[in-house]
Amino acid sequence: MTSLGDRWVAAARGAGATAGDADLAAAGEYLLARWSEPQRQYHTVAHLTAVLDVIDEFATLAPGADRVRLAAWLHDAVYDPRALGDTNERDSAEFAEGLLTTLGAPDEVAAEVARLVGLTAGHATNDDDPDGELLCDADLAILASTPDDYAAYTAAIRREYAHVPDEAFRGGRTQVLKALLELPSIYRHAPLRQAWEDRARANLEAELKTLG
Rank of each mutant, 00 (worst) to 15 (best):
A65M: 10
A200V: 01
L84H: 12
D53Q: 15
E133L: 09
V9T: 12
M1R: 07
R170C: 10
L103E: 07
S36Q: 12
E182N: 11
P38V: 12
T18Q: 11
W196I: 00
T146F: 10
G172D: 06
E94P: 00
D149H: 15
T60R: 13
D107N: 04
L84V: 14
A124E: 11
A10M: 02
R199D: 07
A46T: 15
G5Q: 03
R82C: 12
E167F: 08
R69P: 13
D86F: 08
D198W: 04
A25W: 03
R40H: 09
A22H: 04
I157T: 13
D23Y: 02
G104E: 06
E167I: 11
H123S: 00
S92Y: 00
A33R: 15
L116R: 11
R90W: 10
A168N: 10
E29V: 09
R193W: 02
L61Y: 07
D148V: 13
D66K: 13
G172K: 05
T49D: 13
L70C: 10
L52S: 11
H123K: 01
L181N: 01
E29C: 01
R90D: 09
E112R: 15
Q194T: 13
N88H: 08
D91I: 02
P191G: 04
T2I: 08
H163P: 08
G132V: 09
E182K: 04
L192D: 01
L135Y: 11
Q175T: 12
E89Q: 09
W35H: 11
R159P: 07
A206F: 03
D129C: 06
D56V: 14
R82S: 15
A114E: 12
G16I: 01
T174C: 06
T154F: 04
A141F: 09
L32N: 04
R90F: 07
G172Q: 05
L134R: 09
T154W: 10
L180S: 01
L24C: 09
P165A: 14
T102Y: 14
